[in-house]
Design a protein around this nucleic acid. Sequence first.
DNA 1: CATGAATGAGTATTCATTCAT
DNA 2: GATGAATGAATACTCATTCAT
Lengths: 228, 228, 228, 228
Amino acid sequence: MTQHATHVDRQDTKTPTTERGRRTRAKLVDAARTIFESDGFIDARITDIARTAGVAYGTFYTYFTSKEEIFGEVARAVQREMLLADQAPVASSGPEPTTAAERIERANRRYLESYQRNARLMAVIEQNALRSPELLEIRREIRRAFVERSTQAIAAWQRQGLADPELDPRYAASALGSMVDRFAYVWLVLEDDFELERAVSTLTRLWVHALGLQADATLPTRPASTPT
Amino acid sequence: MTQHATHVDRQDTKTPTTERGRRTRAKLVDAARTIFESDGFIDARITDIARTAGVAYGTFYTYFTSKEEIFGEVARAVQREMLLADQAPVASSGPEPTTAAERIERANRRYLESYQRNARLMAVIEQNALRSPELLEIRREIRRAFVERSTQAIAAWQRQGLADPELDPRYAASALGSMVDRFAYVWLVLEDDFELERAVSTLTRLWVHALGLQADATLPTRPASTPT
Amino acid sequence: MTQHATHVDRQDTKTPTTERGRRTRAKLVDAARTIFESDGFIDARITDIARTAGVAYGTFYTYFTSKEEIFGEVARAVQREMLLADQAPVASSGPEPTTAAERIERANRRYLESYQRNARLMAVIEQNALRSPELLEIRREIRRAFVERSTQAIAAWQRQGLADPELDPRYAASALGSMVDRFAYVWLVLEDDFELERAVSTLTRLWVHALGLQADATLPTRPASTPT
Amino acid sequence: MTQHATHVDRQDTKTPTTERGRRTRAKLVDAARTIFESDGFIDARITDIARTAGVAYGTFYTYFTSKEEIFGEVARAVQREMLLADQAPVASSGPEPTTAAERIERANRRYLESYQRNARLMAVIEQNALRSPELLEIRREIRRAFVERSTQAIAAWQRQGLADPELDPRYAASALGSMVDRFAYVWLVLEDDFELERAVSTLTRLWVHALGLQADATLPTRPASTPT
DNA sequence: CATGAATGAGTATTCATTCAT
DNA sequence: GATGAATGAATACTCATTCAT
């Protein structure tokens, strides 16, 4: 009988119906990426995102419920790029790798390279991962994808008698992935003084030896990737 | 071994003259630690710190210039604890280690154990490291202390022919330290499902093999520590 | 008995031309009633009305100029129902009343019963009466219709020597109508603890005595109604 | 371990400790009354309240949690005045009443008079009673006080054989109180055309007859008051 | 007629920091 | 030293209304 609470279900992100809407939404996501990259999450203002996207203030709320929401979308996009960078058979890293070591090296190089491109955003994502359950979940998803790949690779090498059978693949994958990810962070975000080539070779050497891989072992299945 | 003491000389910090003042100040730092731990940096309010410390609002500014300043102090305290935990010849970890592997294991175990105690604060420090040059500097100091020790240990092992001479000691120390630190973060902050004993043994195995150490090599000098 | 029809001629209301238009418009009014009932005026959103009606957002403005306008329409509809409930010779209240007391009782009962059905909306109308001159006018119309009828009845009873001749019929009609209306509000909106039968009998007794009516006096003309 | 929700107990109204604080708070309540009276609840802006009180914007929040809270305080104050107006043995209404009728008349007159002084605020309170559980509760308290007094008076008259014993005192008190309150609202807020003296005499006559009181009955105990 | 995207004005609230007592 | 009142800048979000398609 009384009114009190405003119980109306305020709907979430409205998915655009028209082509025009789709374009506007995309412009907003692009703009948000730019703004988050330069200002971080807290200092990023919706006004700036809207202005950068070239739309009116209110238009932002036509597509997003909150700053958190669009941030989540940007975070997911960045991760997807990082993940794809590793898989893509781009010409960037020379000839197709054949040995496990070569595959590991390529993965490490690619991870560091894409981290270089996205360092600022990666830092911002990290800083804000605990801001909300949704963001934390996105953060976890990201890790999961990377770690999963490495875990599979390590397990396969173990079955083939190439890698130390004593290691728990998931623990090892998580640890070694953390090593590369954290190294990148320290290097590119905290700006410690390192250099790409030496970083790649050191990390690769550590990976290979840590797993007990024969340096020249041929790798028949999936390559190891570089988890977060 | 020289630890470049970059303690920025905070002239603004008001040092208490009387004994009473010293106590008040200490109460504030304690309270701040509690508050930062449960609320993070941004959500922590001076009111809460003052109330928890049992002093009036304005009293906070008798001893500190800003929220950042007291946060820096808390961060440094945590760092000191982490560092001491590693060095202390506490009875906690059984007999004095003799081999490199044993020393590495003890360092890893101690790092994970103290991370368990301070996980939330470690996360908060990480998240806010980029907030100001001073905080970034504190963050770097923390790493530096840990990495420096490992670098020395690795270099020594190399000189003794125990460790892979191809590795750049600083790169390797940074990478392996990152591995342990990040593993702890993923485990204790992102709450991934791991278990202490298996974590210690896996991390130790990875360290030892990565460095190419003979598992039974006796370690004459300083033990390896676990960098951030 | 002349009911000064003060229906402000809303030229802005767009009257539908086609049959389909008429249906769409009706759906909107229905939906608006539902929404205003549950959310009140301020919290009601055009989106919700449109969605509930099953039409597109913009369609609302094909038929209505503003939220106030459609609210006025709903208010008028509720008024009409309240008024009709009182007049209708529905079978609901037993045999046709013959004495003044019986007529008063029936009117009171019917008023309370229809108030039960529309309590929430009546409250919303009341709360927003001062929002605009148009709404205030609608609110006044509602009263006027009820008070006018009672005034006529009281005057008639006075001419017939049945009611206290000292009373100003309009003042008395307004006051006694207010009594019933307000009682209903307190009961059904503020949710005070009352019970229908006792309410009807108490209100009727008060009415009858207040007017100085002989309880058994036969009533030749129109029944008293229950003003707002 | 995670932070997510900001669970801190943000305290409610801070009661001023110092004399200065007490003065500032009082200034704010006064100002709020002025502003609510002229602008209603929704259109009242904190800026205006602060400016009228002659303090800085933020000072408002030193003493109040929200606009609702200070509104509740103003509402309570107004009611207290209405309640006191009836009790006070002010010289305003001539000699001390002796009969029940005289007491009822005085109560009615005083209620209408104080309603005249506070009509606008009474309307604003009414309009916003359902805005929050707290305000609703305040609204209910107000009624309760008024109705309680009348209920007691009616019951006493019944025990003394002066009033119709068939009436349920609480129902009758609520109804007759509603009559006066609502009449005042229609007259002073909806601006129907009435006049004070005739209103007082009509309402009194209706009250007296409705209760079946002998017009000249002496009233030994407490006078009837005019509920909301 | 119907649709749904675009617009942008308007404001409550927070809290670190300063200062008068 | 301690206290607690005063300050005010800074911004996310809502939603009625307009309009292009």
